[in-house]
Design a protein around this nucleic acid. Structure first.
Lengths: 347, 347
DNA sequence: TTGAAAGCGCTAACAT
DNA sequence: ATGTTAGCGCTTTCAA
């Protein structure tokens, strides 16, 4: 046999009809364990892979999910893609990428047009697109299934993310426990929900420790390195400078470290620095940057699984013995984060 | 009309058979100008878009190009994807990602299988896959069109890349001109063609400056941060340590910087450090890392354009009046690099 | 220059 | 729990 195996080959080999093969491939119910096993073996042996084109044509679905993203960092997107692709591969789905020009005036129209031409079965929204009210509205109205990752977004759609506020609070507490009382904070873009949550967590930790909030210790950035530099220059210029700075992400934190070096400050003895995201750079900096790790791959995987369940899930929902529906989970799924404590905060 | 128009709708509206519509859509010959006109109008009026799935199924093409990649860095892959997607979007092609498990025993089989199931019309090979002889052989044998990016590869297929050796030579010359005579070098993985080329460039610069080659100044890494750390520990442990270290990529260079800090060396006065790739980290480190910038986005774009030309080019090749074939360019296309000189090499 | 018919490989609706 | 039958929208013969 020279060309690729088709569903017919599998059916013949397993001694069943092609429909049964289809059931196994699509994880539909009503296949006996024995049959499923036999079919699975034939599939493995023939190295059968269903043709996306044929499935799409016949099923009116594209077996494609779309990933919409703005100008997030490459490491974030890379991790996210890995997670998504893992699930996609298992489930024989394809991934269509749509890098959105965030500043486009008619972003929603662009996205809708892309959806029309690509016809993905569902969409994953990565931040900060998930925070865009107009876009979410348009998506909701269009009826396409979607899920947000790494952001609670506007709360009007399902999402998979960590508890950003709790993470920021915990990191802040770590700094406070290290003896810091003058804590600087570099905010992210105001229109990112996660920026706000991280700031809230910071404030919560302060007030829990009875440290008065000092507005002069707060600077604003845009999540990029350069804005971290600017923020640090502002925060470190006064006489009464902070002894620790918590930046809302690693790129800005690395900017803070840059300025500290320029000013001849030693990290962490003169200035402790913390970031958020655990991007690769946090290990590579000297000293290593303490930061918060999100399980981005898992987030991608989980989001994809939930999206696929949503797409084809309704039918499986009340499977079996009158039990509760399986897919009616909470709209949002919260995954655990982890504090990565490195030398930048340890005296 | 609620759902999208199909070829039948167009045919009915234009009063022709679907085959004629197909001819018009695919710009095939043997359609009278009048008919073509009429069909074109119907297409415009119905906003007809041919279904990729159906075209793929029937025609054996997918209008998809595949991107194969191993464990390259996220910033590299991100840039590459941006370049590729730009061209894809213009040409109405989709992009299918295939992250290859490099250590897989039957990598070629995996890839071939993926090709058979996804049926991309062409493939972009990113390093180090382009250096895998067995894989390239398999691809060549399978007859699928492909092109390598950022690596001359084994030289048995088209590619788009920079002149790695010249770049490494130029960076080395920069170090020599800064007064360094004891130059350390951290090699990349031996099975990466670009590792070898970068090393060759280094050696060429040494001999051009009449600096004797010293084997004790050469260490081996695997392109990852940790291996840079190990390499630096080795290179900086002896008494007669180098005054400059050129690492084959930025991640390893950052490892070198880490060790320098640990040993209390000041960069660049005690030790100059240079990297390769101009990943974002090179700016974020302190001091900024001198490195070589590849135009990765352009490489991606160019490769995609050439691949698509190759895919659909054959039929256009001898169009009309016996002119020369249009697509017979050189197999390899060399794009310019750029030295990014930052503080890590400037006294 | 045009069209009719036969699939491509799969899923959906309806048997059994 | 499994099979049968009709297509999905298009391209490819091959015929007119």
């Amino acid at each position: 046999m020279t060309s690729a195996a088709t569903i017919n080959d599998v059916a013949t080999m397993a001694g069943v009809s092609i429909k049964t093969v289809s059931r196994v491939v699509n994880r539909e119910p009503n296949v006996s364990e024995k049959t499923r096993e036999r079919v699975a073996q034939a599939i493995a042996q023939l190295r059968y892979k269903p043709s996306l084109a044929a499935r799409g044509l016949a099923g009116g679905r594209s077996f494609l999910i779309g990933l919409l993203y703005g100008n997030a960092s490459d490491s974030f997107l890379g991790e996210l893609q890995r997670g998504i692709l893992r699930t996609c591969r298992e489930r024989h789905y394809g991934l269509a990428l749509f890098p959105v020009a965030q500043q486009a005036p008619d972003l929603e129209a662009d996205v809708l047009e892309w959806i029309r031409s690509t016809q993905p079965d569902g969409i994953i929204l990565s931040p900060p697109l998930s925070d865009n009210e107009a876009l979410v509205d348009a998506l909701l109205k269009s009826g396409i299934k979607f899920i947000s990752v790494s952001s609670a977004g506007t709360g009007r759609g399902p999402s998979v993310h960590i508890d950003e506020a709790a993470a920021a609070q915990q990191m802040t507490r770590h700094l406070i426990e290290a003896g810091h009382r003058r804590l600087g904070f570099v905010k992210g873009p105001a229109d990112h929900v996660c920026s706000c949550l991280r700031f809230e967590g910071f404030c919560a930790a302060l007030s829990a420790a009875d440290i008065p909030f000092d507005d002069s210790l707060i600077a604003c950035g845009d999540f990029h390195f350069d804005s971290g530099v600017e923020a640090a220059e502002q925060l470190l210029s006064g006489l009464n400078r902070p002894t620790a700075i918590f930046a809302s992400n690693d790129d800005m934190a690395s900017g803070v470290m840059h300025v500290a070096y320029q000013k001849g400050l030693t990290i962490p003895s003169d200035l402790a620095v913390a970031g958020f995201d655990d991007t690769p750079v946090s290990r590579q900096l000297w000293p290593g940057l303490s930061t918060v790790r999100q399980p981005i791959q898992s987030i991608g995987q989980t989001a994809t699984e939930r999206l696929l369940a949503d797409i084809s899930g309704v039918k499986n929902e009340n499977s079996g013995n009158g039990a509760e529906p399986k897919y009616r989970r909470a709209e949002s799924e919260i995954l655990p984060f982890e504090l990565m404590l490195r030398a930048s905060t340890k005296g």
